[in-house]
Each structure stands twice: as C-alpha cells, then as structure tokens.
Design a protein around this nucleic acid. Structure first.
Length: 920
RNA sequence: GCGGAUGUGGUGGAAUUGGUAGACACGCUAGACUUAGGAUCUAGUGCCGUGAGGCGUGGGGGUUCGACUCCCUUCAUCCGCACCA
C-alpha cells in the first residue's frame, strides 16, 4: 500500500483542529512544562526552511513531555510591530495593520502545514490593542516606580515622595541621575511642576535629554544593541549622535542583578559572556582632581587606583562640560577646532580610526591629590563622554592608550613598576610591585589597590566604585507602527493617563514625520485620538522590544481583560522551562525581558525573577547558492569549468533553475528578459554552475521554502530531515538531496505495517529479538531527547526500522510502542499508523513506553582485542566471565599467538564489556 | 586586540564517563528486478597498497596499556565585543 503524505497530513491536521487536541488548561494535578519559541516578526517574505528549525525541536520536546504525563504549555504568536510593515506603509499608503494581518495569515498557513502542536487558542500579537494595552500598563508601573538601593528593589514612587516630604533626599539611596540634595522644606515648598521634574530623575521610566543614536535614513533613534559597527542593524544606515528628549528605562539599576542572575540560568556560555560584556561591570575607584586656579574638581573613574602615582596628565572627552571653562585663551582656538572635528565625525569613523592618536592641550593643569604636582589637562576622543565620568587620569606606564598618547605628544611617562621595561609599550600586567609610589611602594597590585582606595577615601577625595558599561535603554521611537505611550503633556511635563485609560494608535494621513520633524503621531488631530488630555499626547512610540519583553507571561492567560495575566495562572505556569531561538537576540530581547521580569517580581506581580530557565540557540540554516559566469560586456555565459579562460562576472542564479549544479538553459532564458538571447559556452554539452554556501536570502535566489518541501516530501519528512541535518545548535547548509534518506525511512516504516495491498499486522507475542530492538531504541531515543540530541534520535529510529525489517517484524505490540516513539518527530504518520493499529483517539494522549532492562542485557559480548592499542581481531565471549577468565580465554585463543611473535605479554588489560588490550 | 565556539571520509554527521574512529544518511561503484521510478532489493565504499600490511579525527609535542576525547603549543574558520579608563 502506498504512503500518501498529502492526504494523511491534511487528514490529521484537520483532526487536531476539530478535536482541539493541543488546547491546554491549568491542571494543578499535573506537573507543568513550558516550552517556548521566540515568536516571529511576520515579514512579507514568509518562512524559509531555516525558521522552523527551532520550532520543530521545541515541538518534539513538547510532544515528548506530553507523552511523559506533563501538562505542556506550548504557544505561538507574533511580534507584529516593526519597521518593514511601516516602510511598506510609507511607500504605498496602506495601513501597516493590513500588511501585518496578511503576513500573519501567510505565516499561519505555513506553520499549520508543518504539524506543530501549538495551542493556537493562546495566540498573542503585540500589535493588537488588547495586548499592547498591557504593555502600556507595564510602562505605567515603570513610570510609577523608583529603585531603592538600600532594599535593592523597585518600589512604588509614592514611597519616595513620602520620604521627600519628611526628610528630603538626604538619606535616600536610589538609582538616579546626579542630583543636588534637597531638604524636606525645599521639597514641600516646590510646586507640582518642580516636584515632577525632580521625580523624573528617580522614575524607572523617565524623560530626559540624552545623547542618542539618531538614524536619519530610518527617521528614528536606535538603542545601542540596534547599532552594529556604527550603522543601523536593520538596513545598515549611518547613525549619528544627537541630543534629544527621549523616554528611557533605568535598566542600569538592575545591572548587578542581571549579571548575578546569569549564574541561575542555563544559557550557553557564549551567550552569558555576551551579556556580561554588555553589562561590563568593572571595579575601581572614583577620584576627584582639583583644577589649578579654578574652583572645579574633575572626577575620574579608574580600575587601577594602585597606579595613581603614575599619573602624568589627564584627558577629558571633547564633549566634557568643563572643557570650555578651563581652556586658556591661548588654547581656545585649537580646542574649539578639535571639538568641532570630533562632532563632525560619525560614530563609524570614530570606530574605524581607532589607531590614530589625536588630542589638544587645554592649557589648564590639575593638581595631583597626593604629590601635589601640576599635571596638564588634555582633551582627546579616545576618552568617551558616555563611559565613566568622561575623564581619565592617564597612567602611561600602565595603560597602552595613555602610553601611545604620551609618546605621541611627548608627555612624561613616570615608571612605577619594578623591573619592567616601558620603553616600547606600557606594562599592563598586574604582576609587578610598585615603585616611585610613596605609601604604595613595594606593594603588589591587589594590596596596593586596597591601600590606595582606603587613602583616597580617608582623604575625602573619592571612593571605591563599581562602574558599568550598560547604559539606560532609550525607549522612544519616532515611528508610527509601535505601541503608543499612555502619556500626555501639560506645560511640558509628561503625565500618565489614569489607571483605566490607555491609548490606541490614532489614524494619520501619512506614516511620515511632520514638516517640523515631529514623529508621525503628531499628524493625528485631536479627534483621531481615543484619549486626549492636556496640551498634547505623546508622539513617540515604543521600541520593538517592548512587546516581546513580557509576551511569555501573556500566553499564560491571553484573554484576561482585567489584568496582564492572573496571578494564579502565572504561579502555575511559572518560568519558561525551555526557550528556543536565535542567538541574535543575545543582548537585546533577552536582557530586556530579564529586566522586566525582575521589575515585575519586585512589585510582587510574579514569584520568579528570571523568565527563562533554559535557553537553546538553534543554528542558522544556510543556503546553497548557484552561480553563472557572464563574459564581461556580453550576453555570453561560460560553464564553471571554463570560466577562467574568459574575463567573467559571477551572478547569482535562481536555484530553482538548477538541478545538481546543471543549469536548465531553457528556463534560464525565460527567467529574465535580458537573458532571452543569451549564448552559452558549455562543457560536456552541459552548463555547470558554481556554488557556495551562504546566508539564505531573497537577493541571493537561494531560498528554500518549507511549503515546497511539504508538497513534495511531506511535513513529517521536513521535520525529520531538519533534525537529521545535525546538532540543533550548529549552523549547517540546506541540501535537498539528503532528504531522500528520511523519505526512504518513512516508506520503510510504512511497509512494516503493510503488505502490498493492505494493513498487515500480527497479534502474536513478540519475539525476544524484536523486544531487544524495541527496548534498546526506547532507551536511546529517550536519553537522546533529554540531551537535545535530536539528530541521533532519528538515526536510532532508522536503525530500529532497519533491524525490524530484517526481522520481518509486523508485531502489533512492538509496532505500537514504536509508533509512540516516532510521534514527536513524525506526528502525522504516527497518528495514521496508530489508527491502523486499531487504536482509538490521538497517539499524543498515550504514554511514552518504559524501558524493560531485561531486554538490554546481552549474554555475550564481542570483544575487540588490541595489541599495543591496535585492534587486531574480535572474540565472542559470554558476558558472565570474570576479568581473569577473559584473560585466560584470550591468551589461549589461536589468533593471539600470531600477534605475540613468541614473546610473553607484558600486561593484559581487560575492561569488561569494553575492550581487551595486550601489551607486548 | 580581547572573549567564545568549531576543525573527523567526496558530503551532512556519529562516537554519553579516555576503551572497536567513521554509526545513520547522502553520494558513488557493481549487480538484481521491473507495469521505466525521484521505486525496491543485494554487495561494496576513510586513504595508500595486487597483497601482507601501513597511515589516518587541522599541524607539532606530551600524559596513558589505550587519546577525536585530557594537557601544552601552533594554524585555520565562524561568531560576539572592541579606544570601557
């Protein structure tokens, strides 16, 4: 009987839908398991075969866990706000919601064909008002909170104002902007506007003028993680620094907890390392240097307070506030010039010209806090305004950049390390003891560091300090297609809407900025807003990562109208047990959702402070591109082997026009009008294309869609093949020719249940051999799933089918268990076979078969016999033999003497059930 | 420059704690069958060699009875960060 994947897959997909097979509800009597995929942005291009890789793996785990009796939450949804739909809207005038809806429909069709066990009744879309209402609600909570460093947690803002009313801010330890102290009397004397301004410095969501990454091409600001190598991650447009009034989230308050939390979660080492680097914690001290003839103090941050006697100059960032004040008249022209030049350079130029040493002397001097020496103050763009205090104490003996600067400008390089050579470069290692360093002389790095900090503190010129690279996250985007803020303005002061009010995206006449450069929402008239208060509404929208920072919670209770999710349901489903997704979200999405989780935990809404217990990054599936070679300035194409005889240009060719690297010339001519008259230089009568493995993308014409694979081979084959390709976490090229291996396996499996015309299953008792195959397979399949080794599970299923075929097994009880083993991987065929076995209902509601150990023991073992570690022959021995008996048997064996050459063996190593090694 | 990961047949890959390197597939070779198919089955397939045998997990060295696996060193590729004081 033929195996017809089209019919079978349609049939069971309909069955699952009609029977709500994968719908799940909270059930306290069952242990829960939460398997989550990173939800996709529904792009216009649809899914290619790389996208489902992670979904298939997580689906297998979800199905396996169900068979093991867990109550499994396995939802899917869409991260449906985003730039592409908006860009399309700008070009065509079509509302992005329409484009988004169409794309979602396409995604859904594609996903449904692959046979996932998602509970679609829990679908969420970040662009749905019923969803982003709660994103706004979380923003309100952030706005209404401050971070109490004494308790190391976020607290409602009213607890702060109560303290202000009683004591001012004198005793407050808060994560906030640099702010002058004020008394209770002062606080109480201020009007509301003044109080609000002060409070903004404490709120976890705050409006402030900040230096932002402005991308003119996209017309919006970008967060640091959205900028790669000085250009925008999306589109690769230039990015410049601009001072703008923006909403920010005070993620820096959580820097240490985000770092600490990494020890609690099971993420890959490289991912944790990326987050650690991003947070960039460094320990050191802040020290204040007084400026000669000025009432100013310059604060610096250093990780090497032990090297303070090596300071021979100071460097400020060109943007530093004090530069204008301290620069002397003789130097002011050159300094201005330098500042201008720095400002004109883009972020990218600054990054690429790292090696060039530039700077200007301000003419001013600082006073060394211990030696009292006058040290010159310079400016240079190697000091970043955005890190630390924007100023450094330069220690050329110990820091290469300072050394380069000193050497370039002929500044002093005082030696402070014993027995080190600093004539060629700085000595940055921490293993030398100090000299020329007053009270630090003779001390090693660690001791000196402590001593220096102590002295700095006792002299009142600074303190030990921890610094972070992490910046607060800019939370405004000057775009249309994102969450609007629940904020209005009154006299320039931002105010929250009341608890029961929230904003829906207003209609606008165009999705572009206004002529005054205001964001698109500024185009909305008063009547376009569902809520309008104060002088105006907030025109910015939230960034793409807002909705994705908490979506895993909404899945737990997606239809809740009165709450972002009910406390009981969140308590039941709790953390995500397994999260599968791409590594590109390492520092963006994952850091933000960890931050929001900790925040919601602080306010008592949830009982866990890490969202994802375990995370797996699936590898990328690369495409295999094909190329044709066109002779320059002609319409002649040369076959791969002869291309070097001509001056050619390599062009991507659609892989659908190529089979086994041979070009379909007729269809190639029809592909594009300019190729209609093309001529070809062939080899062996054929046109051979070149090939290369590269990223799958439309522009490279190498995209493989899952739809096509499902049409030709079926969803089960697609699922099996994606897993069979290799370890989940590895990147690997997609190669369609290998898929015949898994279809062969499915057909072979099908034949176990059928003869030529019909189902052919025996109800006899299974044989010992059949049971051995079965139980060995159960054991292998289960242990491999548990270590996420999905490719070897497929191999083991293949081995089982090969062996059962050899045994001519058509035994119902063996095949029943085999079908359950198969069902997470090839659910459609498993359902079909399950019903052919005469069983009722869905195979997914069965129990995973248990291993019976008695079928795993073998009564004999084939020992490989090695001489000096080289395997020479094998010998079959009963498993029951002791080491000594095995040794006797082997030495008495005929072949052994051949390899001994008459010598006595020096030593015989016997590892039972492993190996015998004879040392000669 | 710093950090992380990875190097195994013609190809994708396997080898759970150091114990038969190359499972399972693709591809290839030869054959069988045939209602000619992208079907099925049989045998073979790491490299060199007719053979016995030798060599083999990027290279070099080491530990061990025994190393893809552990240690040192070196090279290559990919990814991330990059003037972070």
């Amino acid at each position: 009987m033929e195996y017809n994947h089209i019919e079978i897959e349609k049939k069971w997909q309909r069955f699952w839908k009609e029977n709500r097979t994968y719908a799940v509800t909270e059930d306290p009597s069952k242990e829960k398991f939460y398997v989550l995929d990173m939800f996709p942005y529904p792009s216009g291009a649809g899914l290619h075969v790389g996208h489902p890789l992670g979904y298939i793996a997580s689906d297998i785990v979800a199905r396996y866990k169900r068979l093991k009796g867990y109550n499994v939450l396995h939802p899917m949804g869409y991260d449906s706000f985003g730039l592409p739909a908006e860009q399309y809207a700008i070009q065509t005038g079509q509302h992005p919601a329409i484009t988004t809806e169409q794309n979602i429909q396409r995604y859904r069709t594609q996903l449904d064909r692959i046979g996932f066990s998602f509970d679609w009744e829990r679908e969420v879309r970040t662009s749905e008002p019923s969803y982003y209402k709660w994103t706004q609600w979380i923003f309100k909570q952030l706005f209404n909170s401050w971070y109490n460093l004494d308790l190391d947690k976020a607290q409602p803002i009213h607890s702060l104002t109560q303290i202000f009313e009683k004591d001012g801010n004198l005793n407050i330890q808060a994560a906030c902007e640099d702010i002058d102290t004020f008394s209770a009397a002062e606080w109480n004397s201020w009007d509301e506007t003044q109080q609000e301004k002060v409070l903004l410095n404490y709120r976890l969501a705050y409006l402030a003028d900040s230096w932002v990454n402005w991308c003119p091409a996209l017309g919006t600001v970008l967060a640091n993680d959205e900028v790669k190598e000085g250009v925008s991650e999306r589109g690769g447009h230039p990015v410049e620094q601009k001072l703008m009034s923006q909403w920010s989230l005070r993620i820096t308050a959580y820097a240490d907890r985000l770092l600490e939390g990494l020890t609690q979660v099971d993420f890959s080492e490289s991912l944790k390392e990326q987050q650690r680097n991003w947070i960039g914690k460094s320990k050191g001290a802040s020290v204040r240097f007084t400026v000669n003839d000025h009432p100013l103090e310059i604060e610096v941050f250093t990780t090497r307070p032990d090297t303070i006697f090596g300071v021979s100059f100071m460097v400020l960032a060109p943007e530093h506030d004090y530069v204008d004040e301290i620069t002397t008249t003789e130097n002011v022209a050159a300094v201005r010039e330098y500042q201008k030049a720095t400002a004109a350079r883009s972020e990218r130029e600054r990054q690429t010209e790292v090696k060039k040493v530039t700077g200007e002397f301000t003419g001013a001097f600082a006073i060394h806090p211990f030696s009292g020496k006058k040290i010159p103050i310079w400016i240079s763009d190697y000091v970043l305004a955005s890190y630390g205090t924007g100023a450094v104490m330069a220690v050329p003996a110990g820091d290469q950049r300072d050394w380069d600067f000193a050497t370039h400008f002929n500044l002093e390089i005082p030696p402070i390390f014993e027995n080190t050579d600093i004539s060629e470069s700085a000595y940055a290692d921490k293993d030398a003891s100090l000299v020329n360093s007053d009270f630090l002389n003779g001390l090693d790095h660690t001791t000196a560091n402590e001593a220096a900090i102590k002295k700095i503190e006792s002299n009142g010129i600074g303190a030990g300090k921890i610094n972070y690279r992490l910046r607060d996250a800019i939370f405004s985007r000057q775009r249309y297609w994102g969450e609007p803020f629940p904020v209005y303005y009154e006299k320039g002061i931002p105010k929250l809407l009341s608890d029961d009010q929230w904003v829906t995206l207003p209609d606008v006449d165009a999705y572009l900025p206004t002529e005054e450069g205001e964001p698109p929402l500024a185009r909305a008239n008063k009547e376009n807003w569902n809520v309008f208060q104060g002088d105006r509404m907030e025109y910015n929208t939230m960034p793409g990562w807002a909705g994705s920072s908490w979506y895993f919670l909404r899945y737990m209770d997606p239809h809740n109208q009165g709450d972002f999710a009910s406390k009981e349901k969140m308590e039941y489903w709790n953390q995500v047990d397994l999260y599968v997704g791409g590594a590109e979200h390492a520092v963006g999405h994952l850091l933000y959702s960890r931050f929001w989780t900790k925040f919601l935990y602080d306010l008592g809404y949830i009982s866990f402070d890490e969202p994802f217990k375990k995370l797996i990054n699936q590898g990328m599936i690369q495409g295999r591109s094909n190329f044709v070679y066109r002779v320059k300035n002609s319409n002649q194409f040369v076959s791969f082997g002869k291309r070097k005889e001509y001056d050619t240009v390599r062009l991507h060719v659609d892989i659908n026009l190529v089979k086994d690297d041979i070009l379909d010339i007729e269809n190639f001519k029809k592909w594009r009008p300019e190729f209609a008259e093309a001529t070809f230089v062939l080899e062996d009568g054929r046109y051979v294309c070149g090939s290369e493995v590269e990223k799958m993308s439309k522009s490279k014409f190498n995209v493989q869609t899952p739809d096509l694979v499902c049409d030709e081979y079926g969803a089960d084959a697609l699922r099996l093949y994606e897993m069979f390709l290799g370890p989940l976490t590895d990147s690997k090229p997609w190669n369609t020719s290998g898929i015949s291996g898994v279809t062969g396996f499915l057909k072979k499996l099908w034949r176990l249940f059928h003869n030529e015309n019909s189902v052919f299953i025996s109800s006899d008792a299974p044989s010992e051999d059949e049971l051995k195959v079965l139980h060995r397979t159960i054991q292998k399949v289960e242990s491999d799933i548990l270590r996420f080794s999905f490719n070897t599970v497929v191999s083991n299923l293949m081995i089982a089918v090969n062996e059962l075929t050899a045994l001519k097994c058509n035994n119902a009880s063996v095949l029943k268990d085999l079908t359950i083993l198969l069902s997470p991987y090839a659910p459609h065929m498993a359902e079909e076979l399950w019903s052919k076995l005469g069983m009722e209902g869905s195979v997914s509601s069965q129990s995973f078969p248990a291993v019976d150990e008695q079928f795993l023991v073998e009564d004999s073992f084939t020992y490989p016999v090695s001489f000096n570690g080289k395997m020479r022959f094998k010998i079959d021995l009963p498993s029951s033999l002791s080491k000594e008996e095995i040794e006797t048997e082997v030495l008495a064996y005929g072949k052994t003497s051949n390899y001994l050459n008459g010598q006595d063996p020096k030593k015989v190593i016997v590892v039972p059930k492993r190996i015998i090694n004879i040392v000669v």
